[in-house]
Each structure stands twice: as structure tokens, then as C-alpha cells.
Amino acid sequence: MIEPMLKVTGLVKSFGGLIATNDVNIDVAPDEVHAVIGPNGAGKTTFIAQIAGDLRPDTGTIQFAGSDITRLATPKRARLGLARSFQITSIFRDVTVEDNVAMAVQAHDGHSFRFWREARRDPQLRDPARAVLKQVGLDHRCDVVAGELAHGEQRQLELAMAIATGPAMLLLDEPMAGMGAEESARMVDLLRSLKGNVAILLVEHDMDAVFALADRITVLVRGRAIATGEPHEIRDDDEVRKAYLGEDD
């Protein structure tokens, strides 16, 4: 088996008496879409936060692209190629769509201690930004102020920013949250087009999307990973059905 892009071993995080992440092991192959599902309160957000670097685990290690990133700060992880989208859309609302993506490009184009040249006219930033916007189907909205986009478009923009950093892995926290059926379908298509080129760790509530995209699924319940397997295995797993999918699902 090839070396995994992400390898999480024995991850534990507790807040006081509450164990939010309880000995979780997960690995994601470089060309895999690995979904993490679980009922509300299962600890998905805490889990994502530890991988992104916003929270330090109590014990356990996180390896990414061959190096131990357990104690690395968020920006450094991002520069290694770990890009993320947030559960609640996180964009720069007061500048244009293209400005947003150009910032993502800039983050991975060397340091930004460049004080003189005008960034908005730098083709080294703008050209790749436009290319990514075309890829996600937002190229007709380049000059719109990001805060004025529809909700679904903002989610697309956030994904565009993640892609523009040229990541080795995408960490997607509920990318379909709050989307209509049509928007969701478009997002699924978009993610499917990325599949194989980049590792994806997908946390999602939308089961149709998860089963359409995932190569493997890990089920998280009360901080524990109770099952990991291919979609059909997860669907047929009795424990998972009981804990999460519901009897009539």
C-alpha cells in the first residue's frame, strides 16, 4: 500500500470530563476521498480542528505528507499543503471574488514581505486565481464583492480558495451545509472532478453526497471511531445503523 497522505494515530482530546476525541485512528490515501460522519455532538468539529491545527490534541500524533505535524501551527500546516474549508463560510467578504482567490494564491507564492508592487495588478496572482474560478464555475462572478454572493456561491468560492493553494489534501467541513438540492448536486460534481488528484477528508451531514463521493467512510460516535470501511460496508454495519443511520434508513 502506498504511504498515506494523512495518518492520525491514537488521537485524544478532552475538555474537562468530556472526551471529545477518544483514541481515533484514521488514514487518508493521496488519491482518496475519506468521509467522516456521525451524529451531532460526535466530535467531528473537534477532530477537524486538531487536524487543521486550531486545537492541540492531548495525546496522539498527526502525520501529514510524511512529516509529524502534531505540534505545528495552523499557517505552517497550510503551507505544507493542507487546505481547508470551514463549517461556517469563511471568506473575505469586503473584497471581490477574484481578490479572495488571489490571496489564496499569494499565500503559496513565497513570503509576502513585498512592500511596493501593486498586488491587484500582479499577473502571477491574478491569472491563477481566474483559472481556478473558471474551474469551479465562478468566473462570471470575478468582480462581485464576495459578501454579496449567494450562499451556495460563497461555498464554491471557499472551495476555490482551498484549491488555489495547490493543496495535497483538502479538509472540508460540511461543504454542503445550508445548500439547496441543486447547489448540492453542483458541489458533488465539483468534488468528484477533484477526486483522485488530491486527498480529501470530508465531514458531511448530507448522506447522499457522502455515499456518492466517498471511497471510505469513518463513523464517529461520542468521540470514538466505531467503524471504518467502504460505503456498502458502512451501510450494512449493524452497529452503525443502530448508532447513527436510524432503523428505518
Binding site: 499557517p75 505552517k76 497550510a78 469563511s90 471568506i91 490571496m103 499565500a107
Partner: peptide, 13 residues
């Protein structure tokens, strides 16, 4: 505008 996003993009703010 959004420091959290900036850090997640890879800027050591």
C-alpha cells in the same frame, strides 16, 4: 477582515 481565514490559507499573520 478575517484573520482565521488568513491563517488557514497559510499566512503567519
Amino acid at each position: 477582515s478575517n484573520e482565521v481565514r488568513l491563517r488557514a490559507l497559510g499566512f503567519s499573520v
